[in-house]
Simulated assay, not measured.
Amino acid sequence: MNHPFPVPIDYVEFTSPRLEETQAFMTDAFGWSFIDYGPDYRDLQQAGLGGGLERGPLRPPLVILRTEDLEGMLDRVTAAGATITKTIYAFPGGRRFEFTEPGGNGMAVWQPD
């Protein structure tokens, strides 16, 4: 499939069942800071790439791409063979969907408001 432009990696989300301990580790080991968004989510700062830390069961990091055409990207990844795992949903600041690519990696695409 030919693309008019590359779609950049914009954000990486980590999960941890022990959110506060993971946050403290990342601060101490890497010098990253966080903005707290409630008891279960932290926005990662100073890591060279946008990111987040979410309280929840441990899973591989989720790579998130940014687009200005969310529905168009949903069509593109579906046509390329992705399995949609979460349909488009809104969150503070934008909308996104999640999918697995044919090899099994979880990914997401978001569009800012």
Rank of each mutant, 00 (worst) to 15 (best):
G93V: 01
L70R: 00
T83R: 11
P6C: 11
V77T: 02
K86M: 13
T22F: 10
E20I: 09
V7M: 13
F25K: 09
Y11L: 04
E98F: 00
G94W: 04
H3E: 15
F91Q: 02
P61D: 06
S33P: 06
T67C: 11
T15F: 05
D75A: 15
D75F: 13
I88T: 10
S16Y: 03
A79T: 13
R96S: 07
T85D: 04
Q46W: 09
W32S: 06
E98W: 00
I35G: 10
I35M: 11
G93Q: 10
G31P: 05
D113E: 14
T100F: 03
E101S: 08
D75C: 14
Q45E: 05
G38A: 06
P57N: 15
T85Q: 02
A79W: 08
P6E: 13
F30L: 09
G56R: 03
S16V: 04
A29C: 11
E20F: 05
A108H: 01
R76E: 11
S33A: 12
M1S: 14
E68R: 10
Y41T: 06
L49W: 03
T87G: 08
A29I: 07
E71D: 13
N2S: 15
E101M: 11
G31D: 13
D113A: 14
I84V: 12
A80E: 12
V63P: 00
T87L: 05
F97R: 02
T100V: 10
D75W: 12
G31Q: 11
F34C: 04
L44D: 03
F99G: 03
A90W: 06
G104H: 08
A108M: 07
A108V: 02
E21L: 11
F99P: 04
R96M: 05
I64H: 01
G103S: 13
A80G: 09
G50L: 06
L62V: 06
S16L: 09
R95L: 05
D36L: 07
I35Q: 14
A47W: 04
G72R: 11
P8C: 12
A82G: 00
V109I: 13
T83Y: 07
A47R: 02
R76I: 09
D28P: 00
T100A: 07
D43C: 13
A24P: 00
R95F: 07
Q23K: 12
T83S: 10
T67P: 07
P61L: 08
Y11A: 02
P92I: 02
G103K: 08
D113H: 12
T87F: 06
G48P: 00
M1R: 11
